Amino acid sequence: MGVGKVTIYLRGTEEYSELQANVGMGSFHDRRPGGTSAHLGTKQVFRGKGTGQIAANVGVGSIELRPEE
């Protein structure tokens, strides 16, 4: 995505083997228990127990990881 906000809802780490979140200018927030936040340009990589990969890219804006409700 060029500009905007991406929210990814996750049940757990079983949904992916690797999750990459890239933000060129903006913020990243992991709202799951024990999660972290980062601002400006950031690349976050998480390893999971699943088989697929998730890649989220935002040029200007934010990426947010949330536990599935």
Rank of each mutant, 00 (worst) to 15 (best):
M1G: 11
M1C: 07
G2N: 10
G2W: 08
G2T: 11
V3I: 14
V3K: 03
G4L: 07
G4W: 04
G4A: 07
K5F: 06
V6C: 04
V6R: 01
V6H: 00
V6M: 05
T7N: 08
T7K: 09
I8H: 01
Y9C: 04
Y9A: 14
Y9N: 11
L10K: 02
L10A: 02
G12A: 09
E14L: 06
E15F: 03
E15W: 03
E15P: 01
E15V: 07
Y16P: 01
Y16L: 06
S17K: 13
S17T: 12
S17D: 10
E18Y: 08
E18I: 14
Q20F: 06
Q20T: 15
A21P: 00
A21Y: 01
N22G: 08
N22K: 13
G24W: 03
M25Q: 04
M25I: 15
G26P: 06
G26F: 05
G26L: 08
S27R: 06
S27H: 04
H29C: 06
D30I: 07
D30H: 02
R32W: 07
P33A: 13
P33Y: 10
G35L: 07
G35S: 06
T36M: 10
T36P: 00
T36F: 04
S37M: 08
S37W: 02
A38V: 09
A38Y: 03
A38M: 08
A38K: 13
H39Q: 10
H39C: 03
H39S: 14
L40N: 12
L40F: 10
L40C: 05
L40R: 13
G41Y: 05
G41H: 12
G41E: 14
T42D: 12
T42P: 00
K43V: 14
K43Y: 02
K43P: 00
K43M: 11
K43G: 08
Q44D: 05
Q44R: 15
Q44I: 15
V45M: 07
V45P: 00
V45A: 06
F46I: 14
F46A: 02
F46Q: 06
R47A: 13
R47E: 13
R47T: 14
G48F: 05
K49D: 10
K49G: 01
K49T: 15
K49S: 13
G50W: 05
G50C: 08
T51V: 13
T51A: 10
G52Q: 11
G52T: 14
G52A: 12
G52S: 13
G52K: 12
Q53K: 15
Q53N: 11
Q53I: 14
I54C: 01
A55S: 11
A55L: 12
A55W: 01
A56T: 12
A56P: 01
N57M: 08
N57S: 12
N57D: 12
N57H: 10
V58D: 02
V58W: 00
V58N: 01
V58G: 00
G59P: 00
G59H: 08
G59C: 10
G59K: 05
V60D: 04
G61N: 06
G61M: 09
S62K: 09
I63G: 01
E64I: 15
E64N: 02
L65T: 04
L65V: 09
L65D: 03
R66P: 00
R66K: 13
P67H: 06
P67T: 14
P67E: 15
P67L: 15
P67V: 13
E68H: 08
E68A: 11
E68N: 08
E69R: 14
